[in-house]
Design a protein around this nucleic acid. Structure first.
Length: 273
DNA sequence: TTCATTTGACCGTG
DNA sequence: CACGGTCAAATGAA
């Protein structure tokens, strides 16, 4: 027990160290991007990018080597997923409202992962199904589920703008995508969504995020990525992969069974009922 | 016409 | 009863 917590503490230290390092290098890269002419060759943007990637890669490898939920401090007491589908027909209520008693449960007991990002874009196609004003929160919370819910993908997420910094969004992911890459750009699959970590490379100050970046526009981006598989992400990923292969980190990050799942979409694109 | 978003109602939990 | 998560009709966009 104590040994376990010690290793956890060590891992946490290592993670924090890596993240701090990555943040510093990212800041350097940011200034470099702002004044590219001043790049007299001391440090190239590419070098910095590689360093950042390495730092985040290291972080991911630590995360994927053990329970991420513990490190994130997220609940994960097992049990089944929050909402469950309505069972069947029931006509005990007025036409407008069907009887939804027992249709869903609360309490998200499945694994959840939190992420703070300047963008809601994460490479997946999401469909908004609700929005609520939350007590003591200035901004509403938006509820999304995977577009391919009807193919069996149970992934959902909640997005909420952060009160202290409205440019940032806190996204909480529930469940995992089972629709994999059939409808989105290919990517590495790690325990927690790897694309999220790559999104960290999109610098907030470079992107004109203003308050008009609503969920709507972000979702549009998601679905367009689905419809025409542009492979920006893919080329990014292959760059990343090739740079990582040099350092043998790639093998560490991608567990065996997940590597094989990349080219084996599990969802079946059938017509939904 | 199809598909996504909006929005108010419904429902379970604490 | 309040709150938060979900549903589904209405509405809008392509």
């Amino acid at each position: 027990m104590s040994i376990l917590s010690e290793t956890l503490i060590a891992k946490r230290r290592r993670l924090i160290g890596e993240l701090v390092k990555g943040k510093k290098i990212a800041a350097q890269l940011q200034t470099l991007l702002h004044k590219p002419l001043k790049n007299n060759g001391s440090v190239s943007a590419e070098d910095l990018a590689v360093k950042i990637l390495r730092s985040f890669t290291e972080t991911l490898s630590v995360l994927s080597s053990n329970e991420t939920s513990q490190i994130y401090g997220v609940d994960g007491d097992g049990g089944d997923t929050g909402a469950s589908a309505c069972s069947e027909e029931s006509e005990k209520k007025p036409a407008r409202v069907k009887d939804r008693r027992g249709c869903y449960k609360r309490g998200r007991t499945s694994d959840s992962r939190k992420k703070v990002s300047p963008t809601m874009e994460d490479g997946y196609a999401w469909r908004k199904y609700g929005q609520k004003n939350i007590l003591n929160s200035e901004y509403p919370r938006c509820y999304y589920r995977c577009t391919h819910k009807y193919e069996g993908c149970k992934a959902t997420k909640q997005v909420q703008r952060i009160k202290e910094d409205p440019n940032l969004y806190q996204t909480t992911y529930f469940d995992h995508h089972t629709c994999t890459d059939a409808m989105r750009a290919p990517q590495i699959i790690v325990d927690s969504d790897p694309v999220e970590s790559l999104n960290l490379l999109s610098f907030e100050s470079k992107i004109p995020w203003n308050q008009d970046h609503t969920s709507r526009s972000m979702i549009k981006i998601s679905s367009s990525a689905k419809e025409e598989p542009k492979h920006d992400t893919q080329s990014d990923m292959s760059d990343l992969k090739s740079s990582l292969e040099d350092s043998n980190l790639w093998q560490e990050i991608v567990p065996m069974e997940q590597k094989s799942s990349v080219d084996a979409p599990v969802w079946d694109p059938k017509t939904r009922s």
